[in-house]
Every structure is written in C-alpha cells, then in structure tokens.
Design a protein around this nucleic acid. Sequence first.
DNA 1: GGAACAATTG
DNA 2: CAATTGTTCC
Lengths: 261, 261
Amino acid sequence: MPFFTISTFNANSVRSRLQILERWLIKNPVDVLCLQETKVSDDQFPASAFDSWGYHVFFRGRKAYAGVAIACQGEPNEIIYGFPDGKDGKDDDRLMIARFDDLWVINTYVPQGKSIDHPDYRYKKDFFRRFLDLLESEFKADDKIIWVGDMNVAPEEKDVTKPETKRNHVCFHEEIRDIFDTVKSWGFVDVFRKHHPEEGQYTFWDYRVKNALERNIGWRVDHILATPSVADRSVDCYIDREPRSWEKPSDHTFLVGIFDL
Amino acid sequence: MPFFTISTFNANSVRSRLQILERWLIKNPVDVLCLQETKVSDDQFPASAFDSWGYHVFFRGRKAYAGVAIACQGEPNEIIYGFPDGKDGKDDDRLMIARFDDLWVINTYVPQGKSIDHPDYRYKKDFFRRFLDLLESEFKADDKIIWVGDMNVAPEEKDVTKPETKRNHVCFHEEIRDIFDTVKSWGFVDVFRKHHPEEGQYTFWDYRVKNALERNIGWRVDHILATPSVADRSVDCYIDREPRSWEKPSDHTFLVGIFDL
DNA sequence: GGAACAATTG
DNA sequence: CAATTGTTCC
C-alpha cells in the first residue's frame, strides 16, 4: 500500500495562485491538499482547475477574506463545514473536516488576531477554545486525526526570527502559545517537529520584509499535527520552500506530511 | 535594398503588453513600430525591454492616459514631440514625429471624444484641425510622409459592424469622418485601403463585446496613410489579427505597412 | 473586459 | 509586497 500524503498551503487567494498550484501539484501529487485564505465566494471558486488536475475539491468561502478548501484524489466519505456549535455561523469558512474511511482530516484557518488589544484576538482565543470543545465532544484521542492548517501560532522560540522582538505579537505571545499548547495536549503530536527539530524552519515569509526568503526572516505558523496512532506512522514531514521563490508566490509555502497508514 | 516596414499598435498600456510586443517583434521585425496608449510616465517607460529586442525607443507619456512611442532599428535623425503650436502643452503625448533621412513618420493617438456632446469631442475635432495646420505650415504634399496611429475614426461604412447603430458614435459620426477626410485630402492615401478594399477589416475589437474577435465585431480605427510619393511605393499593408487572440491582448492589434523605398 | 487609480489590509 | 474593494476610462 502506498503512503498517504497530505499538504497544507495558505494560498493567499486561490484564484491568484492557480499557476503555483498547478506547477506544485504536477511535481508533488498528494492524496489531500488543504488550502487556507482562498479569498473567494463559493460561486467564484475555480473548481474546474482542480478537476483538470485530477482532484475533487470542496470549499467554503466568502469574497476577500478567509476561506478554506480541501482537494483530494480519492472520494471523501463526508465533508463537514464549520463548528457544530454553529456560533454566529461565520466560521464555516475557517474550519472544515473531511473523512476518508477512519481517517479524519481537519483543516483550519485560525484568525490572525491583529493585535493583543484588538477584538479579533479575543475571537482567535475563542476559536481555539471552541476547537477544543469540538475535539472533546466529537472525537477521542485514539481516533485517527490529522489536523492541518494555518494556525497563526509559532509554538516555540525557534519558530520565529528574533523572538525577543515578537513577545507581544498575536502569533507569538505567550498566552496564545499556551492556548495552542493546551489544544495540542488534548492529543496531538507536532508531526513536523517529530522529523525536524532544527530552528529557522519557516512556512511564511512576509511580503513586506525585503528578501525575506533569502534572508530567511519568517515564521512557522502552518502545521501538520496528528493523533498518536497516525503520528506514529509518519514517514516524513517537510517544508517545500521552493514555491515561495516562484513567480507570483503566496507569502506562505507548502508543508507536506507523509504517512504509512 | 530591402523593404521599409512600419507597424502601428495601440498597446493599451505598454507595460502590460511587453509579452505581446516581444512575441510579435520576434516574428515580425519592423524598421519602425509606432505605439499609442502607452499609459506610462517617461520615468517608468520600459525602455530596457526595447533595448533587449534591438530597438531604439523614443516616448512621451504620463501615467494612466494616452502616451505615444516610436521604436526603431535604425537611428532617427530627429524626434519631435507635440504640436508646434504648443497649445496647452497637453498633446505632447499624443503626437510625435521621427525623421529618417527624407522620410517623416508621424505617430498620433487622436482623442476618442467620449460622446458627441462631451467637451472631449470638441477637443478631438480641434486635434484634427491643429494637425491640418501643422501639415500646412510645416510640410508639403510632395514630402515623403507616413502618418500612422490610432485615429479613433472609422472612415467608411464597411469599417464598422452595423454602421446604422453607430451614426452617433464619436468614432463614426458623419462630422468626424468628414473632418478626417478633409485632413487626408491635404495629401494622404489610405495605404491599407489601397491593398485591401474588403469590408470587415478591423484593427480594434472591444473587450466588452464577448467573442468579439471570433464574431468579428470590431472597428477599423488604426491607420497607415502616406503621401503619394510613398504610397505609390507601398508593396502591402495588412492587419495581423493574431495578437488579438494571444494571452493578455490589447483590444487593438498590429497594422503593418511595407514599402519599396 | 481589462487597464489604470486610490485606499485598505496583512 | 501583494492581495482586496472600489472608481474611472475606453
């Protein structure tokens, strides 16, 4: 049986990233690709492009902000959008779940939060708390779950450049790292870190920082996590920096996980 | 001695058209290429692209509107920008003249005019009257002159689709056709019409008309005219429709004139 | 429809 | 820097 491969990519507009996506998928066929920040309403989603590349695609989005999608070569058994708590109904484009037999794939685009004193940061913390509620009410830690996405949290000092300058940042503040850690403690292993303990392994390089990629000034905010039964079977997990250097790049790049399920 | 080849092309932003220009010039090297609607200020003009294609380039423009350029493989003896009347100084990016020994090349981007009752239409008519003044004061009809550009006039019924629906259009109104005809009567031959009397020969297809090119719903508003001594030596003059079908096209295409000078 | 502009966001 | 939503122009 071949390996199960999964990737996560914050596209920063899926319509602006079709060339990148096509080029990457040709070289890197995966079973499942999870996208964030598709920034497109469902009626405008470029589904036919994914069709032509041989992928089914499921998506939930609105114009200009957020939006998630899952593209996959096999048929999922079910797709679930948003939190079951259904609170304000605005998060159905930030969280989606696909089931492939007994394997659950959860794709999240966690709110960034703007600044510590901004209401959006409150909302970010709530997002993680509601996500933990979801785990506790709907799953067990011995279920087979892969949780991927842009979590907008750099968990450790080595996951950012100059951590001392970022203590007050919504993606690195001690409080949000603690909250993310609490969610992980429910039962997730950081699959990337299992294979790559090195520092300076980033998935996001700000467009505004010049030569950010060459200077490697970035953040590790995109993650692949898995429950132990799945994580135990991970073969590799790596960041493909290359697409960040291609024409018309996203500010994020692809993170890939390979599992011997 | 090889033929003298000249082309005119409304680029609708020269910076957005570099790929089209490169691709076309590789297949169609010309002695002189006249551009209109470059839509770029002089400090932003992509001169190095023309350099790399083996052309000298001269230009006068402002941001967002109008702008003309002449690219040529040989060195011109002189370049003149704007009307000598210098009125309001705003037309120096709508008219330029290059001299190659005893051959004058005049490149114009005639104002479109918006609508018959708009002040811009008055300005369009003035443009032609001032152009006639220029001819009368600076040239003789036995000079060797090639006048090219986007004239924003379709001279005859056969130069538009459904002429009966366009009688009130600023590019087809009887008044503007009469004015254009008066200017031509100073001493120009329509070189394209000398070789191609057929109807439905267009140089412009509106982006907003869907499948305009396939349905051939367009306008012949770009022209190559010449004084008799030059026109007598024209070998061919044709519209190259192909670039209108390429990726990221202008709404106009290239008109080419070949002369045995 | 596709260029440009300006303003806003991350 | 590169997306977005608007507007205007042809």
